[in-house]
Design a protein around this nucleic acid. Structure first.
Length: 277
DNA sequence: CCGACAACCTGTGAGC
DNA sequence: TGCTCACAGGTTGTCG
């Protein structure tokens, strides 16, 4: 469900609720996430103060100072089906509600993740030192990701450009929806070998990735199936997709039928007329 | 290094 | 209604 804009929307919704507050207790109901939720996490978090809620790619980082022990970060990833939202302390947990953070204000941050592809981890010290985060490429919305950087990264790569921009080692947080949408906006065929995308088109693509992610964040993310923000409100960027989920429908720019194919076991949607190699 | 594929797990919708 | 199958926002790991 969540790509970078949905994770950022969640972060913005939760930050004012958790920053500079303490965790009263943490509740783990199911440790079987993509990786096991660490034993002892509840004890570590009880009484910890949350200094900041930040994001790296699609990872949410609760930077904590525990009551005892050294500072560290609670790392949460929402996987495919996770969502993190605020509930009232009286709200009974449901089937797939695997984790709660009870804040001293009495508010509860609840993780629901039916598929359990998500993660709940603890990293001592700087969260960015965690192996899953350390090897990540730049944030797409900051200045260290730009056309020249993308051009450099794509030179040695023969893989399709769509697979390359979805590779978190190249740039963090570009998932299937926004990869499709940014390639449409940039007018690039998703199958183009990365090394054959020109300097000018790399610049355009980097810009379109920033633009589409920014617009999606401003729209509160995309609500597919049951995604809602931390406040329970649905995002509405899904109404502004040009190609994702529109196979067979007319291109909004030229009217040609949008096509769908598979790349890396993921659906790729594109306009055969507006997007070229 | 690359691509193809499987794996993790559950829910949903389409087709029969 | 109910069964089976394909597929879904992500990521890692293996194999040839």
């Amino acid at each position: 469900m969540p790509e970078l804009p949905e994770v950022e929307t969640t972060r913005r919704g939760l930050a004012p609720v958790v920053e500079n507050r303490s965790i009263q207790r943490a509740v783990v109901r199911h440790r079987g996430m993509r990786l096991p939720v660490p034993q002892g996490l509840e004890q570590r978090l009880a009484g910890a103060r949350i200094e900041a809620l930040t994001r790296r790619g699609k990872y949410l980082l609760f930077n904590c100072v525990p009551a005892q022990g050294k500072p560290g970060a609670l790392i949460v990833h929402l996987g495919m089906s996770g969502r993190l939202w605020l509930v009232d302390s009286a709200t009974a947990p449901q089937k797939h509600d695997h984790f709660d953070l009870v804040i001293d204000s009495g508010r509860v941050i609840r993780l629901r993740d039916p598929r359990r592809f998500g993660l709940v981890l603890w990293q001592p010290g700087d969260a960015l030192a965690h192996p899953l985060l350390a090897a990540m490429g730049p944030e797409p919305l900051t200045a260290d990701f730009d056309g020249p950087m993308l051009y450099r990264e794509t030179r040695p790569r023969s893989a399709a450009i769509k697979l390359v921009i979805m590779d978190s080692h190249v740039v963090a947080g570009v998932g299937n929806i926004y990869a499709n949408e940014s390639l449409f906006r940039a007018g690039i065929d998703p199958r183009t070998p990365a090394r054959r995308v020109s300097q000018a088109r790399c610049a355009r693509l980097a810009q379109e990735i920033k633009t589409v992610l920014g617009e999606a964040i401003d729209a509160g993310g995309s609500s597919l199936r049951d995604y809602v923000g931390s406040d329970g409100m649905a995002g509405h960027f899904q109404n502004r997709f040009f190609v994702y989920g529109r196979a067979g429908e007319p291109c909004m720019r030229c009217g040609t039928a949008i096509r769908e194919l598979r790349q890396g076991q993921r659906a790729t949607c594109y306009c055969p007329r507006c997007q070229n190699r």
